[in-house]
Design a protein around this nucleic acid. Structure first.
Length: 911
RNA sequence: GGGGGCUUAGCUCAGUUGGUUAGAGCGCAUCCUUGACAUGGAUGAGGUCGCAGAUUCGAAUUCUGUAGCUCCCACCA
């Protein structure tokens, strides 16, 4: 036990306890067959990334879950790690290189460049993990994993080889999304559609043979720079305007060539002019049309987005966007451009390169997603549950229209594709079914000198999709790892944002189902349930700024979490972020919205401090010890009430965790501790604390009990301050750390305390009585006075309740109470409560009109209530049909309302 | 074009299977530095729960229609 300092200083407390936890091995995960497993795999942040608000939210939630699970007595694994993040990291290093030495990666060569990336990783790789520690994340850091670790790489390659051998992975020349900025193909998921303001060009292609009056076809396009690659003009076969021209030819203006007019139903006659230029090399649809009609594929744009020699000498080497206006100008010079119209359309942008992607034909590796049906089944049958549930629709919807995944990247940083080609055989002549031509294995060919490895690496997501199983030792677990796999896998819950349901969640599910276990065709539900990577998916929203915009560096609206920790403490930030994280999609972040976290910590701190100042500390070493200090005979209504509330809030929190509803979490804790305990219970205690020793000890025992339980309940959210107070107030005397105590359940508390439920009603009435007394004072600007004379007229039980609680009332309301037999006749300001009528005993005259206005307003309210209550109770259908407790409640309310109304009426008349 | 989601106090949001007088935080107004806390306390103003129907004894809550906003997916040049 130690003296609690005057002000709460998170900067002192937080690092202190974090170090202690690490030292004591509090976060270490250990297989324990006697406990239920609870495992979370961290969504691995980019190895060179910096902590941002999204991480704060995601990891705070995970930490809340695992810390709660530890309190519940489960064996807990929170696996940390980082992702090599292929494109992001490589781009960053390339940029740095360019800026510092002016070199490109080609100057260094593959080996040399990769060395630089590893250096960079060594420098910055630990940063984000350290930042997570500042937040209080209770990961088992000894297990920190990296997607390019040797063992992990082996898992990735094994997965590739298995999927290849099972026929899910193939190589093919296809239209892919090419990023001209990063010089690699990317997957459909890495392309973001953005509205672009551009120009709709209307141009004319001359018919080789005039069609009567008609000498030209009019064609609209947004991309005139690709016309040099046109190999046809397409029209709808049923389009009366053009159908008869099918089979004829037109002149492509430059390089001048005859190209056919073809009929294809893809063309929408109503759109533009109804004529479509077909550029099979640079448009996905055009490519398909080209396939159907056997058209030449003329590539005129290269990997960097520049035009090449095929486009003609004046365009050779020109950037695609420059070429767009240049081509239009040339058309205009030739008299072939009819119009330039402003136009807005959706253009695909490369997520990383942030430039428009270029559809490009290239040889790539593709994954035909395995186990799509089973991936759906696992979710549909509830083996995997999404929280909130509605996200499963998004997931299923995506799986329904799923296309093959381009998994090769023209990068160096990543897992190199484990495929080797025999030297001396032209790539085009390779027979992939012949082991003498193509070698696919984890180890590589026995005679590497005769082979050349595929130059590409795998998409980062084609490694992180193994995260849950690879981190536990798959595919070749040692005996120890096998135990871990058996125990922790499938993991309990995955916590992540909805933006990566497609990138990661769905792919992990399919990978797990396909690869975890033997290669069998049919999977029973039981087998499926063993293979899935996690049983629950907790989806949270994205953090946006107060105006709903995405957080970004360029907007400058992305606060540095470390600054926030500096100002509000890690606990304050955690509480705040948890408090504003609704179950909806977006979270609007504004700094003032997390102040509540700091304020709550401060309140907790000061309430504990007040406890310490209120009297000597006693045995707080266990729940039993504290309960043993409470004498039920000494407990009054307030004591029973706060204990009943404690049981209630404990139960509600249990429900929250069981159903993955975290939105109410902080609200429940806040309302109970601040609203009920501090504002009412502690205030009410003050008179008792000044009373006799025995009563004081009893009251302090109850305070100790409530604070202890609040510390337990709040610990997952605000671990540092609760640990500090746990220690300072002597709760740690027998068990050192909160997490090593067993969470007291609502049931435990109920049995141990058995609070009198009837006290709750009495206390609610008292609270109303006190509030009304305060309101009366406030009305007459007497709020600050502590000894305002108040008369009250009450009868029967109510009179007894007031008498028994007179000292509370006087303390809490700051009044001196006097009971009167009869209502005073001289028109004093009054308030009507369920316990009786209050009169402010004023020596000066009152403002009769103001008093009348106030009471009339109150009267109207009550009249409405009475009317509503009466009509309800006169309705036979209600009385007969509604549940008994509802009817009884309505009766009770009507009685009370009627009494109050009559009393107010009487007072009004007397004024 | 397909699929979600949202619409409740000035702002941001709760409101569990329909059921006592619709709540919270912030903001606002008035008062209070009374020995836990001004990162505080007290009091108060402020809502016909987007709109229109339907079901029901009873609807913010269920259903239908409708308007507006928003996100995701999708190959209209």
């Amino acid at each position: 036990m130690s003296q609690i300092a005057k002000a709460y200083d998170p900067k002192e407390v937080e690092p202190h306890w974090y170090a202690k936890w690490l030292e004591a091995g509090c976060f270490k995960a250990a297989v324990d067959p006697n406990r239920l497993p609870y495992a979370i795999m961290i969504p691995p942040p980019n190895v060179t990334g910096m902590l941002h608000m999204g991480h704060v939210l995601d990891n705070t939630l995970q930490d809340i879950f695992v810390r709660r699970a530890r309190l519940e007595g489960k064996a807990v694994l929170w696996q940390p790690g980082t992702d090599h993040a292929g494109i992001a990291t490589q781009t960053k290093v390339e940029k740095g290189l360019r800026e510092t030495t002016g070199q490109s990666k080609y100057d260094l060569g593959r080996e040399g460049f990769l060395e630089k990336v590893w250096d960079f990783r060594a420098e910055s790789g630990e940063v984000i993990l350290n930042q997570l520690q500042k937040l209080g994340a209770s990961c088992d850091w000894d297990r920190t994993s990296f997607t390019l670790d040797q063992a992990y790489s082996k898992a990735v390659l094994t997965a590739f080889v298995s999927l290849y051998k099972r026929g899910h992975i193939y190589r093919g020349k296809r239209m892919v999304n090419w990023c001209p900025a990063t010089h690699t193909a990317i997957s459909d998921e890495e392309v973001n559609m953005q509205p672009q303001r551009g120009v709709f060009y209307k141009m004319r292609y001359e018919l080789v043979e005039a069609d009567g009056e008609r000498t030209h076809l009019e064609i609209s396009t947004t991309r005139p720079e690709t016309l040099m690659g046109d190999s046809a003009v397409a029209v709808h076969p049923a389009d009366e305007r053009y159908a008869h021209l099918i089979g004829k030819t037109v002149w492509r203006p430059f390089p001048k060539a005859q190209i056919p007019i073809i009929g294809d139903t893809y063309v929408d006659p109503a759109f533009g002019t109804g004529c479509l230029k077909v550029t099979p090399a640079h448009d996905k649809n055009d490519f398909e049309i080209g396939q159907r009609h056997n058209l030449a594929v003329l590539e005129v744009i290269d990997a960097e987005g520049k035009l090449n020699g095929l486009a003609g000498p004046e365009f050779d080497g020109m950037d695609r966007f420059k070429a767009r206006t240049a081509a239009a100008q040339k058309l205009e010079d030739m008299g072939l451009l009819i119009a330039r119209e402003p136009y807005e359309n959706m253009v695909g942008f490369s997520e990383r390169g942030n430039v428009p992607i270029e559809p490009r034909l290239s040889e790539q590796w593709f994954l035909r997603y395995p186990r799509v049906a089973e991936a759906k089944r696992a979710v549909e049958r509830g083996m995997i549950q999404f929280h909130p549930d509605r996200w499963k629709k998004t997931y299923l919807n995506w799986l329904n229209g799923i296309q093959d995944w381009c998994i090769s990247r023209q990068l160096w940083w990543g897992h190199r594709i484990p495929v080797w080609y025999k030297k001396g055989i032209a790539r085009s002549a390779l027979d992939f079914d012949c082991p003498d031509h193509v070698h696919v294995s984890v180890e590589g060919p026995p005679d590497p000198e005769n082979w050349e490895q595929d130059a590409d690496v795998l998409d980062t997501w084609a490694s992180s999709y193994l995260w849950p199983m690879a981190n536990l030792g798959w595919p070749e677990p040692s005996a120890e790892q096998q135990k871990e796999l058996d125990f922790w896998y499938p993991t309990t819950v995955l916590v992540t944002g909805f933006d990566i349901i497609f990138f990661w969640v769905a792919r992990m599910i399919m990978a797990g189902i396909e690869l975890y276990g033997d290669d069998v065709e049919e999977l029973s539900d039981d087998a499926l349930a063993q293979r899935i990577p996690f049983k629950n998916v907790f989806i949270h929203g994205l953090i946006r700024d107060a105006k709903g915009r995405k957080m970004s560096k360029s907007l400058g609206n992305s606060p540095d979490p470390l600054d926030l920790i500096q100002t509000y403490g890690a606990d304050g930030l955690r509480f705040g972020i948890c408090n504003i994280a609704p179950s909806g999609s977006d979270i609007l972040f504004a700094e003032e919205r997390i102040q509540i976290g700091r304020n709550f910590c401060n309140k907790l701190w000061n309430a504990s401090r007040f406890r310490q100042m209120s009297g000597p500390m006693a045995d707080n070493s266990s729940l039993e010890a504290i309960v043993g200090r409470i004498d039920p005979a000494l407990c009054d209504d307030y004591d029973h009430w706060i204990l009943a509330r404690l049981v209630g809030v404990s139960e509600e929190l249990e429900k929250c965790f069981a159903s993955y509803e975290i939105a109410p979490l902080t609200h429940l804790i806040y309302a109970f501790f601040w609203g009920d305990f501090c504002d009412w219970y502690v205030e009410a205690s003050k008179s008792k604390l000044r009373g006799d020793e025995i009563l004081r000890a009893n009251t302090l025992a109850i305070q100790d009990l409530v604070i202890r339980q609040v510390l337990q309940l709040a610990h997952p959210v605000i671990p540092h301050i609760t640990e500090e107070l746990w220690y300072s107030l002597g709760y740690a005397a027998s068990v050192r750390y909160i997490q090593n105590t067993r969470l007291t359940t609502a049931m435990d508390l109920q049995v141990a305390l058995n609070p009198d439920p009837s006290a709750v009603d009495r206390v609610l009435n008292l609270q109303e009585f006190i509030s009304q007394a305060r309101a009366l004072k406030s009305q007459y600007n007497l709020a600050a006075q502590r000894d305002v004379a108040l008369l009250y007229a009450a009868e029967g039980d109510a009179a007894q309740v007031i008498a028994a609680n007179a000292s509370f009332i006087q303390t809490l309301a700051g009044v001196l109470l006097t009971s009167v037999e009869q209502a005073p006749s001289d028109g004093l300001p009054a308030a009507v409560t369920a316990l009786g009528t209050l009169y402010l005993d004023l020596s000066r005259s009152i403002d009769v009109e103001a008093e009348k206005r106030r009471l009339s307003k109150e009267l109207e309210k009550l009249n409405n209530l009475v009317r509503a209550g009466e009509s309800k109770l006169e309705n036979r259908k209600f009385v007969d049909g509604a549940p008994a407790n509802i009817v009884a409640g309505a009766r009770k309310q009507l009685t009370e309302s009627t009494e109050k109304r009559d009393e107010i009426r009487r007072i009004l008349e007397s004024l």
